[in-house]
């Protein structure tokens, strides 16, 4: 089933606030063969927050995660994420088009800290292959 066109421009409810811990950042760094001794999290760490928002969006729209592949990802950082940050992510759908039976979904996820200041914006293109 194709994704509903009326989604474009819609913002989804923000995720619950998540506290970044050194343990979680270390696990992320180690999963890619790196190490972590404190300080700024690796540059792609914001995906952990953005992914949670994306998952909530897919669930709300009853889209199966296994039908999604990642087409493109960009990050614009206001500052690095560090342990102790309490972060909230708000996802909006920015574009939607259909190519060859696949939905190409553009999303933007704004990650803000406890003071409400923007920390990072992640923009993603998700490719959804609808089932038969």
């Amino acid at each position: 089933m194709p994704v509903d066109q009326s989604l474009v421009g819609r913002s989804f409810p923000p995720t619950g606030a998540v506290e970044v811990t050194a343990d979680r950042v270390r696990a992320f760094a180690e999963a890619t063969g790196s190490s972590y001794a404190g300080g700024p999290a690796p540059a792609t760490y914001p995906i952990v927050l953005a992914f949670e928002a994306m998952n909530a969006f897919l669930e709300a729209e009853q889209v199966d995660l296994f039908r999604i592949v990642h087409g493109e990802q960009r990050f614009a950082y206001e500052r690095p994420i560090v342990p102790g940050d309490v972060l909230t992510t708000t996802l909006s759908v920015t574009s939607l088009r259909q190519i060859g039976g696949a939905d190409i979904i553009g999303t933007s996820s704004e990650i803000t800290d406890a003071s409400g200041a923007l920390v990072c914006t992640g923009t993603a293109t998700l490719v959804h292959r609808a089932g038969e």
Partner: peptide, 20 residues
């Protein structure tokens, strides 16, 4: 990102993107 940050040092990336 690891390649970039091991070269440049952590916390210096202000923009990063790629198409898969």
């Amino acid at each position: 990102a690891r390649f970039v940050e091991e070269h440049a040092g952590p916390g210096r990336v202000v923009g990063f993107g790629a198409k898969f």
